[in-house]
Amino acid sequence: MRRLLFVLPLIVLAALTAIFVLGLNPNRDPHEIDSPLIGKPVASFTAPALADGQPGIADSDFLTGAYKGQVVAINFFASWCVPCRAEHPLLKKLSAEAGIPVLGLAWKDKKEALQGFLGELGNPYDRVGTDENGRIGIVGFGITGVPETFIIDKQGIIRDRIPGPLSDDLIETQLLPLIKDLQK
């Protein structure tokens, strides 16, 4: 009992040190907050197309429209967002390796700027919808910024949310297995 009293402060110190060291981990992303929307159907929204004559994106596309019965990824991005630029080549990779369409939702951006962005870096998106006032992102998907990526299953239910840019590692270890599972 007495010995325990002497060891106790050491144990407390070790526990606190562990908490602080974990907090300092440079790979820890404080934006990674479990989204309450995971497991819920996609909210209803209609995102106008980037250019006339092209299709926009709406929630009905997942249940009854063009993407019925398909697993898809939705990627929120913006031409003013630097990490989006870094992430851009990986979207093509995700689409090709997982065999799914990646849909782009341009968050709080202007059409001209977007056209410049996609013209310069290429267009990895199956469709691009615009969310000019940002409400689809905030109210529909609870995003905290761009980029953010969501995986939608065959029934139009949100299955995963990746805040921040994708990485090779993340695609291979997290997204590809999940998508494979959802495609069964």
Binding site: I33, P36, L37, G142
Partner: peptide
Amino acid sequence: LVARYGDF
């Protein structure tokens, strides 16, 4: 707001 961003 909680429905979109959680208790956080």
